[in-house]
Design a protein around this nucleic acid. Structure first.
Lengths: 217, 217
DNA sequence: ACTCTCTTGCACTCATCCGTTTACTTTTGC
DNA sequence: GCAAAAGTAAACGGATGAGTGCAAGAGAGT
């Protein structure tokens, strides 16, 4: 065995064709799985959607389930990054009312507008088949937002701008007052949410107002 | 053609064997469909679960989809009846705080404890395939509760016990403050909810308390 | 240029599923 | 009791899906 390091020796090396195929397949699989669920999606569907041979799919992924796990894992990671930057922008703010109203708007726009709702639909629908993904998503995406909001509320409490006993519970109240109804309804409406985006933002603002009344000092 | 009416002439007549088979099949299909979803369930599974021949299934129902529609239709009707009696018990009450706290408890116990969560999971998972069922359920079960709660809140407002501008929005706030977080979490947790039932009821009470603070006169 | 790897298209196996047919037994209504 | 209707078990046809094999072409690294 040679000591010289070639590109083939690097453990993380990957043929660019496989990299490209993986990207195409994962993007297509994400679309199709989210659209039709796990049993409702065939590997042929994914291959066609990816513009790739079915044999190539099995060259990159061992089987359908492993592919699904890769898709969900990536989607959860994306949702987690998303949650982190969402709460990072509203970490410290002087005025509680302004900060929470702004957070409510951002929450509504990002959760209702992006791919969060289809992902949640998929995870809920497959919660029996893949229970670990559902709980993992819940801990890493909404759970992270919730603890961050709880931290912010604790800060507002210490500054006397709010009166918060149980910050975790208050964070839940804030989240569900602002986007609870919109999110729940969106899960059942398979159609477009574009038209109702404005209504959701307004409901979020009014939910934030109700929260401020409930937790006023 | 004879004028005499025999049992065969009655339009609603049905062979008792078919009645029995239908009951067995629908009960079994409800279990299996809710457990594994529409594409994840085979007619053979249903027949075995019902303890009935597969041919009998096709003797009572035209095809798999019609059977599924019958199941969902019945489940929605049950949920609707359920919603109606839930709100009927708390229609008129003297004290707003006591009435809403009691309603919160009942809401949590019934929604989280019964078959509501699995049904919601199924409807959400198949929202793309059967969008009409998802919206129909939403209008007839939670929607009915929501309008009933809105009516009760309007009454409390007129009696000066609460200050409610938009009763529909306030009803949403009440519902999601009390059971929003518990319900959302239950959708993702495929496991048992029995242990968390007490926690859900306590969260419902504290949610009702927050609602009363937000909408105090 | 040469070799190794990936991709492709197609055919193939094996399993499953929907829905039907067949042959036979049991139940119901009269 | 008897004919009609329903039930059972098993097999079947047609279709689809998961996953594999293979020969030929295209791309990557040296």
């Amino acid at each position: 065995m040679t000591v010289q390091a070639t590109s083939s020796d690097r453990a993380d090396y990957e043929d660019p064709r496989i990299t490209r195929s993986r990207a195409l397949i994962m993007a297509a699989a994400a679309r199709v799985f989210i659209e039709h669920g796990y049993p409702g999606t065939s590997v042929d569907d994914i291959a066609v959607e990816a513009g790739v041979s079915k044999r190539t799919v099995y060259n990159v992924f061992d089987d359908k389930e492993q592919l699904f796990r890769a898709i969900i894992g990536e989607a959860i990671a994306t949702a987690e990054r998303f949650s982190n930057e969402l709460v990072a922008t509203t970490a410290e703010a002087p005025d509680a009312a302004a900060a929470l109203t702004a957070l409510a708007r951002e929450l509504a726009a990002s959760v209702l507008g992006g791919r969060v709702v289809p992902l949640r639909r998929l995870l809920i629908g497959e919660a029996r088949r893949f229970p670990e993904f559902a709980t993992e998503y819940y801990d890493r995406a909404p759970g992270r937002v919730m603890t961050a909001v709880a931290g912010a509320l604790r800060a507002f409490d210490q500054r006397g701008q709010l009166r918060v006993d149980d910050a975790e519970l208050a964070a839940e109240h804030f989240a569900f007052l602002t986007i609870g109804a919109s999110l729940d309804r969106a899960l059942f409406e398979a159609g477009t949410d574009a038209a109702s985006a404005d209504a959701a933002i307004e409901r979020a603002e009014r939910g934030a107002a109700a929260f401020l009344r409930a937790y006023a000092p």
